[in-house]
Write a protein that binds this DNA or RNA. Structure first.
Lengths: 334, 334
DNA sequence: TTGAAAGCGTTACCAA
DNA sequence: TTGGTAACGCTTTCAA
């Protein structure tokens, strides 16, 4: 691989001049620039980003830490990040965490090892190490999906999301409404499912109704478990006529289970999901839409702004808007 | 951020010794090691990966270049890569390409800018620059989904995949079989759709039948277009009783369109997809399964092996096995 | 407008 | 078993 030295030698200039050409500094005469550029093109020289980062004291990498690719909603967020990072001078590095505690050290590396210009963390609780050292580091941090003190956060109002779903079902005349949610995940410290449930119950209570304990199910993993849970609910002597599922994937599972038993959706059973992942529009799922793609793109914009030295309010917390999108898995109670 | 110098000073040793401790070289006495380690822990020192990479002459990054996240099949491949890279000492960097020609320069950077220890390219034709410089670089390259001379490739036999689908439909007694495929994508230089079509036609021809031109549709993007195409096919005076779709997404669109018109699947229409993405098992789609996850994990293993200095045959071409998985969207012709 | 040289934080070699 | 020091390839002063 050719180095800046090689270019300098062949062009008959100093390395400083070559550097200036690369970074198009105005302090180079046109003729010199042309000569240097010719050599660069000729030998196909590429500056080493590593050396550059070392010299500059910062890298050109934006690191995303996420339980990535396990869930379509994360993928959609990632697409948002990528769409913004792609247009910048930064590169996108993905750190996927399966079990945060195992990877605390590597995660630490990513954030404090000089590897990242900025870090975006998605759907994870703050690890002790991160929270602790946060102050001492100059690396811009953005948190998506969780609230962390002193770090700009992009969140949604899960509570309100739950209310939205309940209200929709209530307005359709349903009185027997069930709930299938994620089991609270200690690994990642998620509480969003609980919050959605709380909002859901509140709204129902506001109508003078209640959610019977027997109508509530918590499942560990996506569709399969959700289908099983739905089967149990349907086997009840007085089964619910509507279901709020805390993710689209859970909703898919529930619908599948219902249809497999000859229960028509939305004829006999209405189902509302949460997320609005790409597939849901096609399946016609009624769902509480959260701006997944946008949460990604905005987190990247925030990181870029902090990198550019813009004054980003690190105590800010952006609540992204939720919206019930009504499609064809919910209908009036008969 | 603390440096190796700080550690050396505080521990009263030379930087060399600290370096040896970090990289647990045996050439350090136990007492010295303990003392240095104590200082490291105390001040929370993290070696700079950037400086390390510069000194070593290679980074600890495995770069994946892919039209990533646009397609569930790519995501599944990525998961395969991540599962392997996660267990190694390398980090995963994602370069998403929307339009390869626009990003040729940055792609070049990734491969030849000293940024990557190894590069895995997915679902892309070789750009001129890459092919051209390949020889001059020591960076291990692995190609997935395309055949490139001199680079280890992980591919499938698209032709055979087409035959598999046709055979299945033929065996079920179908004689009027339609085809909905991807439009050949010049941007990424894909020909897999054509190959699948060729194999499909051949197998049908072997039965003494033929695929009427009117039964063949090419669509640009996923489900929506596929649904439209299916609608057209269904509107034909003598519509097909079975469809081979060259991707699961296209199959979803076709099924959706059929059901929307009251055409039962598989009662009135059988549909075979291609890929077997995660959702397909749940939807019950009959499809030609290609080992997506495995193609990712194996490409990463290959890259790791080359990095470890193992002698990988760079002329090798691994054809991953295809398999028809029969589920509930195909049935006997009535 | 340019060249020379000092640093950036490591690793690895050479002496001790 | 150690410490000192020359790389690694770049950016950025400082002089000229």
């Amino acid at each position: 691989m050719a180095t800046i030295q090689d270019v300098a030698r062949r062009a008959g200039v100093g390395v400083g001049t070559v550097s200036r050409v690369i970074n198009n500094s105005p302090l180079v005469s046109d003729t010199t620039r042309a000569r240097v550029q010719a050599v660069i093109d000729e030998i196909g020289y590429r500056p080493s980003t590593v050396a550059r980062a070392l010299s500059l004291g910062h890298s050109s990498i934006i690191t995303v830490v996420a339980p990535f690719l396990t869930d379509p909603s994360v993928v959609l967020r990632l697409r948002g990040v990528a769409s913004v990072v792609r247009e910048s001078e930064y590169d996108l590095v993905l750190y996927d965490v399966e079990a945060p505690e195992q990877h605390a050290a590597r995660l630490d590396d990513a954030i404090y090892g000089g590897r990242s210009a900025a870090v975006i963390v998605m759907s994870l609780a703050a690890s002790g190490a991160i929270a602790q050292k946060r102050e001492s580091s100059k690396v811009p941090l953005v948190w998506v999906d969780r609230r962390i003190d002193g770090v700009p956060c992009l969140t949604i109002d899960d509570h309100e999301g739950g209310r939205l779903a309940a209200r929709h079902l209530l307005e359709l005349g349903h009185r027997h409404i069930g709930f299938i949610g994620d089991r609270p995940d200690e690994r990642f410290g998620f509480t969003s499912g609980d919050d959605r449930f709380a909002g859901f119950c509140e709204e129902i209570a506001a109508s003078g109704l209640a959610v019977p304990g027997g109508y509530v199910r918590r499942v560990a993993h996506g569709m399969e478990d959700a289908a099983t849970a739905m089967g149990e609910l349907l086997a009840l002597p007085d089964p619910p006529t509507a279901i709020f599922a805390t993710s689209d994937l859970i909703a898919y599972g529930a619908i599948e289970a219902a249809r497999a038993r000859g229960v028509r959706v939305p004829g006999d059973l209405s189902v509302v999901g949460f997320d609005d992942i790409a597939m849901s529009a096609h399946i016609g799922l009624t769902t509480v839409r959260q701006p997944l793609f946008e949460s990604g793109s905005r987190s990247a914009e925030l990181a870029l702004a902090m990198l550019a030295g813009d004054d980003v309010d690190t105590t800010a917390e952006w609540d992204l808007p939720l919206e019930l999108v009504e499609r064809s898995t919910t209908g009036p109670h008969r």
